[in-house]
Design a protein around this nucleic acid. Structure first.
Lengths: 162, 162
DNA sequence: CGGTATCCCATTTGATACTG
DNA sequence: CAGTATCAAATGGGATACCG
């Protein structure tokens, strides 16, 4: 199977990867979550080549994750801002950060910590069950495939590849 | 900057990506979380080329995410099983799944749902503040960089690149 | 500042065939 | 079953220069 077609498979992980799975994409989004909005900030802070950055930004805008607009402060400048769809990627980001903090840190410890503004707690969010509130891990959850939809007469149409 | 060196930057997201950021890696791990353990299962269910799969599996074992061992049932067979380090990637996986469910589904809805074994709830986990229990999003959290460690006399040693 | 245009090299990929 | 071996093709870097 070609990588191009994984975005069309019936799996949300695969589809997500087809959008944010490219090499530098999550690092650009890291910058966005840290409040950066401009081309040159992205370039300097990530170290990505300018042409690649341009390509990625275009893709992120096309996919609805970033919005490109002139800055209010200085209309001559351009800003990239997270859309709702982009902001919703925060759990992915923070989960990656936590895993790196837990397993890949050097002796200096985590490079970044987070604080919950509304309660003041200095602690990283966790995955919890919305019903009982317990923290959950892989072993606590059971995956249940969607039951087969009524088979159509012919092959179902598929989204075009990105 | 070369991609190879992002694993050495002082950012847990970047380091995590240097380990699980390669194209097919998370899809292999998806299979692991679904209980698959064998080379051919991985190959069939992901559609990855066999040689690439072999390379990825070797990297995952080297990185401590999977463990390779003969199957207990049939010692002639080989099994790949998640280590603790691998199991800890569940939040990353589930966060990706949820985002795909929310933003990339077709009319059939999410391909997979999950159930919390211990309380029976059919609901996907969320990111919550461990202190106050509220669900958190990007806007609720403030990022705080680690204060600079006492500068060493010479450049600090860095992990070797993968 | 926010990009394009070019050019070239390195890496990844994927198909296929083969093996113990 | 669980891989290797090979090899061609595609893609993705990355450096550099240029532009409005």
């Amino acid at each position: 199977m070609r990588w191009r077609s994984v975005g069309n498979t019936d799996c949300s992980v695969a589809r997500t990867l087809s959008v944010i799975g490219e090499r530098w994409t999550m690092l650009i989004l890291r910058e966005c979550f840290l409040g950066r909005r401009r081309f040159d900030e992205f370039q300097r802070n990530t170290g990505i080549a300018r042409n690649i950055l341009a390509t990625r930004l275009r893709a992120l805008v096309d996919d609805g994750i970033l919005q490109r607009a002139p800055a209010e402060a200085d209309r001559a400048r351009v800003e990239y801002r997270l859309t709702k769809m982009g902001i919703d990627l925060y759990p992915v980001m923070i989960a990656m950060m936590q895993w790196g903090d837990a397993w890949l840190c050097d002796e200096n410890g985590p490079p970044l910590s987070v604080m919950h503004r509304t309660c003041g707690a200095h602690a990283t969010p966790r995955m919890t069950c919305p019903s009982c509130g317990a923290q959950v891990g892989a072993r606590d959850m059971l995956a249940i495939p969607r039951h087969r939809e009524p088979a159509p007469r012919r092959a179902a149409s598929r989204r075009a590849s990105r």
